[in-house]
Design a protein around this nucleic acid. Structure first.
Lengths: 300, 300
DNA sequence: TTGGCTTATACTCAATATGAGCATAAAGAA
DNA sequence: TTCTTTATGCTCATATTGAGTATAAGCCAA
């Protein structure tokens, strides 16, 4: 007995502009590029590429699968059928003058913990979560949930901030009824723009995957221009992870891994001493593609 | 335009018996437990659980999604429809006297690189791959593919063996036409039992995921009995990863991470001095569930 | 022209973490 | 008893990491 199914492909397409990670959206920032799998698509990846390029005009590079959802709230409105969503993370380089790009942190201001906006947002969240648990009847549940808040949002610096827990933090806020998607009135919601359906949740999944992946695979270079200075590279990693990096140690680690090589050219507009330009060389030099990237991401 | 779809759920259910990782199979070891998603399933995970329990009678614990496939060779034979397969990794504890369990390394003998069988198998593979690239016309392609062989199978110890590349190694053997699934005659195939469809590929995906995950999440304990000695724990990690571990350093790392606590009881049947028994305590002690596991897996 | 600001780049130093091994303890077996 | 086996405690050299100092080389404004 096969039921009526519909497969939706959803892309979290990410690029970096002016050291700020951005995501491609449609519908005025309320939806991720997406569309149904069609019989003309040769594969799932091909389908994702087709939809993104059709809806945004932007060709995409690196693509990897994120997650497949088929919850019960994903029922087709047209009948007894079921809607399955397969989400993808895609990375791409430049995008001068295109529309549809939005900052990651418009949707997740609290994830930008290195900025003032992020810190303010976290302070608000802390208060709201505190109120949320205070209203719980069962004492044991209250303690456990507060523990969860503390460890996910690094409240009270007994626990270090873990930048990879983007999804878990969003889900906690959802459960606490502090995001618009959970049906809460805007005045009770945490800062950050909402999206339709569960697209903000999918964005969180993509952000978490990318934050995890840049630690052990050289995927950052998918987002960098051909030539870049080491500070530019550092800025991109910092803004992706939302965490500060010690400059000298960052250089040391990048250099000793031999992922980059000097181009011989110089960037003059640094605001200070000119900087050497580098290019990614992991692809060419090592046919062994399975190299890692170690980054000194620390907590301040 | 929605096409006719069928969703298949496939489980890589893993347990450990006598320090050997095993996978649950049906059809005499030729298939992984699997079945179509039905409208009665409340979620994908629930569907996986239902199918595994119906086909094998074994209840499962930890479950996580692996990958969703929809390649063109996955067309429904009944028409123009498409078959989508969503695969899951599941972990479970004991399974005394159940049928259907097979050793991981019956399917992937070369992945058991710490044993003699594994080393012999790797020697055979090296010869076959050597012959494969030797027959290539284009010199540039030959060099690149040989590079790939060298780095994936750690040929000539210029490169260290990477135990997480299970899937990449299988895919290389598939491309080289050295596995039965690629349609090669049995006498040309590499050792290791084949499976129907792409189930061996999915098993490889599950093995790779588990090998990667035990390094940074305390999932091993899902496979351990309630009480265990540190050597038992080490043996399980070694057999999962196919890599040797330095005993004293392993103990040091496990102890200092405070993932386990003494039960106060003693295991007598060690073959030597009796050993203390431990239990996993990460779950209870730390409501912060996001703890890691660091293991000193080295290459000999 | 000079001092101040910015970023770049080279090095140092202490604290940890890691790989490898030694030594002793405690059981059973020959 | 002596040998073998596993358990467990401890040392030591080396590598990695976090943090900071020092100097270089641009720009700009006084």
């Amino acid at each position: 007995m096969t039921t009526q199914m519909m497969i939706e492909l959803i892309a979290v397409l990410t690029a970096v502009r002016d050291d700020v990670p951005q995501v491609m959206t449609i519908d005025h920032g309320r939806l991720l590029p997406s569309g149904p799998l069609e019989s003309t698509h040769r594969s799932l990846q091909a389908g994702v590429r087709a939809w993104v390029e059709r809806q945004t005009g932007h060709p995409i590079g690196h693509v990897e699968q994120l997650y497949t959802f088929a919850d019960h709230d994903r029922l087709l409105t047209t009948g007894q059928g079921r809607l399955i969503a397969i989400s993808y993370l895609a990375l791409t380089r430049s995008h001068a003058g295109e529309t549809g790009w939005r900052d990651w942190y418009d949707y997740f201001p609290w994830e930008n913990s290195k900025t003032d906006v992020g810190r303010d947002c976290l302070a608000i969240i802390e208060r709201l979560l505190c109120r949320w648990v205070a209203n719980m009847d069962n004492a044991a549940v209250r303690v456990r949930q507060w523990q969860r808040c503390v460890s996910l949002f690094a409240i009270g610096d007994m626990v270090a901030w873990n930048d990879e827990l983007v999804l878990q933090r969003y889900e906690l806020l959802y459960e606490a009824g502090l995001v618009a998607e959970a049906g809460c009135p805007p005045e009770d919601a945490v800062p950050g723009q909402a999206m339709h359906h569960d697209h903000r949740r999918i964005l969180a999944t993509g952000m978490a995957r990318l934050r995890a992946k840049i630690r052990y695979r050289p995927v950052v270079f998918e987002l960098m221009p051909e030539e870049f200075t080491l500070l530019q590279l550092q800025r991109v990693m910092e803004s992706l992870s939302g965490v500060q990096i010690h400059k000298q140690n960052f250089r040391r680690l990048i250099m000793q891994q031999q992922l980059v090589e000097e181009t011989g050219r110089i960037e003059e507009n640094t605001g200070g001493r000119p900087a050497r330009l580098y290019r990614f060389c992991g692809e060419v030099r090592q046919a062994r593609q399975f190299v890692g990237t170690k980054i000194p991401l620390f907590q301040p």
